[in-house]
Amino acid sequence: MTEPLDLAALTDADLARRPFDELVAALQRAVQGLEAGNVGLEESIELYKHALRLHAACETRLREAELTITELGRRGASPAGGDDAG
């Protein structure tokens, strides 16, 4: 579905903007990579750091998530706080 994230190239602010499902998928991959045990120690450490960052990012998102509502076809008349009718 999505390309693996290049964690090393992404700042935490970048992560905060990525779709939640991408973060979950990346976290899952990092954990599976670690558990497979066929990577070197250095790489394991990198994976672990990634897992910590991804988990923190996911947790923040879950904690702060608020349902976004957009309403189509009714410019300016929406009471729901959607910003753009698209």
Binding site: E35, S44, A51, L62
Partner: peptide, 19 residues
């Protein structure tokens, strides 16, 4: 989800400790 994600994090820690 929060509980599932926490389990992922713990598994990562355990795997690295083992390594």
């Amino acid at each position: 989800l929060a509980a599932i994600l926490a389990r992922f994090r713990d598994r990562a820690g355990a795997a690295l400790l083992g390594r």
